[in-house]
Amino acid sequence: MGKIQLVIPPREKDLGGFNVRRILPYATHRMVGPFIFFDHMGPADFRSHEGMDVRPHPHVGLATVTYLFTGKIRHRDSLGSDQLIEPGAINWMTAGKGIVHSERTPSFEREHENHMHGIQLWVALPEEFEDVAPSFIHHPADTLPEFTIGEIKLKLLVGNALGHTSPVKAHSDLFYLEANITAGQLLNFPVLGCEAAAYVVTGKIRADGKEVDPYSMAIVETGDDLELEALTDSKVMILGGSPVGKRFIYWNFVASSQEKLDRAKKAWLPGPGPSNELFKAIPGDDQEFIPLPAEVGNPKGTIM
């Protein structure tokens, strides 16, 4: 049986108009494999004419992975991408040397009451890919492998696992799955020496004798398999992979060195624009942006 090292409880963050439950980075456990950030968005209910508005903001040194259970998000970025994100699809944005994007509820959804529920992860890029050109790729729901083990329904979102391969191209060894486990069912997930974790979206599971409540993440000891028992019908996200090394993180920036972090911070100070070396404006969404947060208490990046 896999030994559970830690269970991380949720911490609610207000992103302006809706809340997220932030799991990673955590004070005593910053990363799981290359995954350096985990936000559970919602579930959020919006009244008519309201919705999510995450204004243009920058990233470097990471890839964002967005997955929705319900609702719709309009993704736009400085490459000119304009993509409607819908439930079941994977949207992989490689920030590389620098990208700007916004995430908003589309206007047609605001014509009525609307609902949004999903998860966004950040994957720290290996050093050799930190400064690649940015890119964005949308993978429709029907392109992602779905299969069953007994009565357990699984969907491989990114990477390789259980004999299946996702079409989503990652930059390192990792896996990310959605598992729907009925009450009383057991899932044995072989980790093969990697770091791994299970996050409970709904329901309740038992791992290594520990009950794991909704919105919590169980971290297995490195190299141990994940063995999960559903105490109620449960939706669980399974993630992990090989570590990519220590990382510095500040706000939306991830880097292997303080120097790269400082370069990104300096570049974002004036905001996006045609003369900005790292951060161009988003076509059609260039009237506002989120400014660099004030450096209070910790002017240097946190080491992961």
Rank of each mutant, 00 (worst) to 15 (best):
I8S: 03
I149R: 09
A124I: 02
F147Y: 06
L239N: 03
L79I: 13
G184R: 02
D14G: 01
R55E: 14
G150S: 07
S242H: 12
R206E: 07
S234A: 04
K246P: 09
A27Y: 13
L125T: 07
I249L: 13
L84Y: 02
R55A: 15
I249F: 13
I23A: 04
N19H: 14
P56Q: 01
F253I: 01
E113A: 13
S275P: 09
I303Y: 13
D262W: 02
E50R: 11
L186Y: 14
L269E: 13
M237R: 01
F189H: 01
M237C: 05
G51E: 01
V200D: 06
I219S: 03
I149L: 12
G223S: 03
L231W: 05
R74H: 14
R47T: 13
P56H: 04
I99H: 01
L162K: 05
V54I: 13
P9T: 07
V65I: 12
K204V: 01
A281G: 10
M116T: 12
L269V: 15
K300C: 10
E229H: 12
G271S: 06
R247Y: 11
P190F: 07
D131W: 11
L84W: 05
S216E: 08
E221A: 14
K235Q: 07
E146D: 10
Y250V: 03
P274E: 10
K265W: 08
K246S: 12
E151F: 11
N114K: 03
E288C: 12
